[in-house]
Design a protein around this nucleic acid. Structure first.
Length: 285
DNA sequence: CTACCGTCAC
DNA sequence: GTGACGGTAG
């Protein structure tokens, strides 16, 4: 016979959990969480609640778990549809799963949709979109819209949306990936071009004076051109979104003194503003 | 991956 | 001074 108190407990829990699924971002997820999309193909992101980074969806809602570029390890597929069971688990094809057991084999990776339109003055630029493949090539989640001038091989501007409700609950990961070239955009090696040595060599050649060149490119004074993010790493909530900013087409040569000074301060001001709004569309360039 | 530099807010 | 953040090199 089942004790009476246990019945009460079970009933209570059922009632309390019936309306939604809730997960703690720092407890209930695997090392490489999937990108979670809701039924309108918006990413489900954590919200800061009393120092807990909570991910919530309504009970019964259908989600898409996506590991673009890799697989959900337990299922050996990139994308799967799942239903919130009203507690901590997800229904997938008549079987329940814990969120923790639905991690990606590697970090979910952004890709680029190329040549989706023209942009810039007199349509000099070409639009490339950095984002996530969802169910294959027919569906794509846009993160960063890049206006790239193929003639000068320079990005004119990048456009991204800051999620004001989620930015306080963003992932903090000290590891930063290398910038990716993603072939077809540049005719030169971008990593070589940005190296401080090649900058010094170029300046020496241009000025014809090595003393003058070493005053112009002076690393200790932050007089060098850094890979200045246009859509910034820190504007994004999840690690895969943050790492999607590390494409060379999302960066322009920027004096490090400015990059690490005014620009950084300006980014923080932007968050202050967007804390007052749900989201803010930002254009940098 | 590790070690390093400079700026800023606290 | 320390940690977060913007970078660098090997």
């Amino acid at each position: 016979m089942v004790p009476y108190s246990l019945c009460i407990a079970v009933l209570f829990c059922t009632l309390a959990w019936a309306d939604e699924c809730a997960w703690d971002r720092d407890v209930d997820f695997s090392e490489n969480p999937p990108i979670i999309f809701d039924e309108s193909f918006e990413i489900v992101r954590p919200v800061l609640e009393d120092n807990y980074r909570m991910v919530r969806v309504t009970a019964g809602s259908k989600l898409i778990l996506d590991c673009p570029g890799t697989n959900i390890t337990s299922l050996a597929v990139t994308t799967v549809e799942a239903t919130c069971d009203g507690g901590r688990n997800l229904w997938i094809d008549d079987k329940t799963w814990e969120m923790k057991d639905l991690g990606c084999t590697a970090e979910a990776a952004a890709t680029i949709r190329r040549n989706t339109g023209s942009c810039g003055s007199e349509d000099i630029g070409v639009i490339h979109i950095i984002g996530f493949e969802i169910l294959g090539p027919e569906s794509f989640y846009e993160l960063i819209r890049v206006c790239f001038d193929p003639t000068s091989e320079t990005t004119l501007y990048s456009q991204n949306v800051i999620k004001g409700r989620n930015i306080a609950a963003k992932d903090v990961d000290p590891n930063r990936p290398d910038f990716k070239t993603s072939s077809g955009f540049f005719t030169v090696s971008m990593s070589s071009v940005y190296s401080q040595n090649s900058q010094l060599n170029l300046m020496t050649e241009l000025l014809g004076d090595s003393d003058l060149a070493s005053q112009t490119i002076n690393v200790s004074k932050e007089f060098y051109f850094a890979k200045g993010h246009l859509a910034p790493d820190a504007d994004f909530v999840t690690v895969p979104e943050q790492d999607a900013t590390y494409f060379y087409i999302n960066a322009v040569p920027q004096w490090q003194a400015f990059n690490n000074g005014n620009w950084k301060v300006s980014a923080k001001e932007t968050w202050q503003v967007c804390g007052e709004f749900v989201m803010l569309e930002q254009v940098n360039g």
